[in-house]
């Protein structure tokens, strides 16, 4: 019986060791997002609470905790409360498979990339549940828009992942990183990296694809009826998802925890820091896009997903596989 408790305690310890930094960095990343956004627009951004405004997110969190939670009278109460919980949980459980270094991963499962894909495809439910349970026009329209958008862009992300898997020959995330020791996949698969980046923007409902929350048309989309901590949970889940997409991009294309060149000053830095640098790099790109690009129209969004990205990434699958076959580079022989 003791061994069970020992395993339980070590696992809980490991999970906390992963989740607490993720949650803290989600709070920090919100601050970074607002700062980058402000600097692009020649504003100052949040700079009052703490040095450089670093504690702004903590102040916001306190504010959310002490606000009243309002549950609309005609809403479906159970589903209404469940929706932010689902969003938040799904955003956090995906971090289990992200490898921060060799043998530095919570769950080194064989189908790591499929797990990430499956969990991110479940993310739609938090939004649909929230939109439906609010029993109000704007949330419902926002939820439908968001679900259609996420399902569409998941397809192209799936095909892009197939491109990477063709070059690796394994579904394990650590294997994917190790396969990039000589050459990061961003170089041979650069068009796929660009499409992955744009699809990740759409998948996480970031601008310019933030139609589910288009203020001018839908107030705040599926979040309209939420207040206090429940709203904050949606918000945390959203940012945790954005970070996760950045981590996925770093693992699939930018060599995960590997240093760019394997010589002294670079490979002395511990591997988790490299992954964190890459995640931050991608996140700053996300923030710059948010600050510069205007919002898409809905039909343009769908056209981009289905008529441009999907055929192009399918074509690239054929190209990659025929290249690998012709030069006899197919892995796993």
């Amino acid at each position: 019986m003791d061994s069970y408790f020992l395993i339980l305690f070590t696992e809980v310890y490991k999970i906390l060791f992963l989740l607490v930094p993720v949650l803290v960095s989600v709070a920090m990343i919100v601050w970074l997002d607002r700062r980058v956004w402000a600097f692009v627009q020649k504003r100052r951004g949040p700079n009052v609470v703490g040095p450089f405004g670093l504690f702004q997110s903590l102040a916001d969190a306190l504010k959310y905790i002490f606000k009243e939670i309002i549950i609309p009278a005609s809403s479906n109460k159970l589903v209404f409360v469940l929706a932010p919980v689902v969003t938040m949980t799904l955003a956090l459980i995906s971090w289990a498979v992200i490898p921060f270094g060799e043998d530095f991963v919570l769950a080194d499962i064989n189908v790591g990339i499929l797990y990430l894909f499956a969990v991110s495809s479940l993310g739609v439910y938090g939004i649909i549940m929230g939109g439906w349970a609010s029993n109000s026009k704007y949330p419902f329209l926002g939820a439908i828009r968001s679900a259609a958008q996420m399902v569409s862009y998941e397809v192209s992300i799936g095909v892009i992942i197939i491109n990477v898997l063709l070059c690796v020959g394994s579904l394990n995330l650590s294997d994917i990183v190790m396969a990039q020791q000589n050459l990061w996949f961003v170089i041979p698969l650069f068009p796929m990296f660009v499409i992955f980046f744009i699809s990740a923007l759409a998948e996480t409902n970031r601008p310019p694809f933030d139609l589910p929350e288009a203020e001018a048309e839908l107030v705040a989309g599926y979040q309209t009826e939420y207040s206090g901590m429940m709203y904050a949970m949606f918000w945390l889940g959203e940012y945790a998802n954005i970070l996760l997409m950045c981590a996925m991009g770093a693992v699939l294309f930018l060599g995960g925890w590997l240093s760019p060149i394997d010589i002294f000053p670079f490979n002395a830095i511990p591997s988790p820091f490299w992954l964190i640098f890459k995640i931050l790099f991608l996140f700053i790109l996300f923030a710059l896009v948010k600050a510069t690009v205007p919002r898409y129209r809905y039909d343009q969004l769908m056209k981009l997903g289905w008529k441009i990205f999907l055929p192009f990434s399918l074509f690239y699958v054929v190209l990659t596989s025929s290249f690998l076959l012709y030069f006899d580079l197919l892995p796993g022989k």
Partner: peptide, 17 residues
């Protein structure tokens, strides 16, 4: 594990939506 994940992706992620 492969079947389980595909079940999640196909049925839960797409069909049930």
């Amino acid at each position: 594990e492969f079947l389980g994940m595909i079940m999640l992706i196909v049925y839960v992620g797409a069909v049930a939506v």
